[in-house]
């Protein structure tokens, strides 16, 4: 019998991140860098946010998930003070958000770009100065970043002369140039090829190691699983699911197990035919003698005990639900319970 995690690599990764996280917590004492309480926002008759409360722990990578039009961008814009909430409160580092806090926040919007006809260096300086840096230190930091990315020769080029990927690198750079305490990325990987996406991913992890808190809004669930510590799922303007990612995956995993066996499964199918069956068979591969089933029993042992009465269990492993599945089922469930048709 062999009980193992399915996605070993990824889980190990999460563990190492958690260790860092724990270290950070120990150093900085437990606090939330950003908290919102009961945010409401409507545009005319359109309700963009309803009673939205989230807490973003200091030093975490916080995933902001949700279907298109759920209200993620409105939420982000409120934090960036691009727009104000109709109701509710935003606390930044324990104090109500003030206008100078924009210098402590970096924001990479989904609809992003740079002045196409402006030179790279000049433009980066301009944006850095807008974020409160003085000219001298902005120049110094930019030179450092240009060396790091090995793009010194781009300084006098116009953005329109660069490829999309190159421009995105510059964009990332100017987002983090003022070394903000909170970074907000809206779909950060769109527009990057896999190699450059990896560079940016490493850069983000690096920033987190230095203590930066990161909010991540994305549809890319793989990167959420890989990087995020906490998530909030927004649907139809509301926070419908929130918490530590491992906890979320455990509680919303749906108790799905993969089993390798020998023997006849007819007796198992007979059990599932009963009303209020203890488990249901989701998938059966008869050639390889593999089963996937969802358990309705309270413990894993109970399920295992029941199975052992009917078949010879060769391997047994819990399947951790992917964020994709959790996302889809949570949205569906919410929409059904509120009588909203899922398109």
């Amino acid at each position: 019998m062999c009980i193992e995690a399915q996605k070993t690599g990824i889980n190990l990764h999460t563990i190492s991140q958690n260790t860092i996280f724990a270290n950070n917590l120990r150093l900085t004492s437990i606090m939330n860098l950003l908290e919102t309480h009961g945010l409401e926002k409507c545009y005319g008759n359109y309700q963009a946010l309803t009673d939205l409360s989230v807490a973003v722990p200091q030093g975490s990578i916080y995933g902001l998930l949700g279907p298109n039009g759920a209200g993620k961008t409105t939420f982000i814009r409120i934090i960036n003070q691009i727009t104000g909430p109709d109701k509710g409160q935003v606390l930044f580092a324990g104090k109500p958000l003030s206008s100078t806090d924009i210098y402590r926040i970096g924001y990479l919007p989904e609809e992003r770009g740079l002045y196409r006809k402006m030179k790279v260096g000049e433009q980066a300086l301009f944006l850095a100065q807008l974020k409160g840096l003085d000219r001298a230190s902005a120049t110094k930091r930019l030179k450092h970043w240009f060396e790091k990315f090995e793009i010194q020769s781009w300084w006098d080029k116009k953005i329109e002369e660069l490829s999309k990927g190159m421009a995105q690198k510059i964009q990332f750079m100017v987002t983090v140039i003022h070394e903000p305490e909170l970074l907000i990325f809206d779909e950060p990987f769109s527009g990057f090829d896999p190699i450059n996406a990896q560079i940016i991913r490493d850069e983000i992890i690096n920033l987190r190691k230095q203590g930066t808190t990161i909010i991540f809004s994305t549809h890319n669930m793989a990167s959420v699983e890989q990087m995020c510590d906490h998530i909030t799922l927004i649907n139809k303007s509301r926070n419908i699911l929130s918490g530590n990612i491992d906890e979320v995956r455990r509680t919303h995993g749906g108790n799905v197990y993969s089993i390798q066996f020998s023997g006849n499964i007819d007796s198992l199918t007979n059990i599932t035919a009963q009303s209020e069956a203890p488990f249901e068979i989701m998938h059966h591969n008869s050639e390889r003698n593999e089963l996937q089933l969802r358990s309705n029993l309270p413990t894993t042992n109970a399920l295992l005990g029941l199975l052992m009465q009917h078949i010879e269990v060769l391997a047994f492993k819990p399947l951790v639900a992917s964020m994709d599945d959790i996302f889809i089922s949570a949205v569906k469930e919410y929409n059904q319970s509120h009588g909203i048709k899922t398109v």
Binding site: Y107, R112, G113, L130, G132, T175
Partner: peptide
């Protein structure tokens, strides 16, 4: 050029 939201987050 889609630069507006970048700027508007600082000003």
């Amino acid at each position: 050029d889609r630069v507006i939201e970048v700027i508007i987050s600082s000003i």
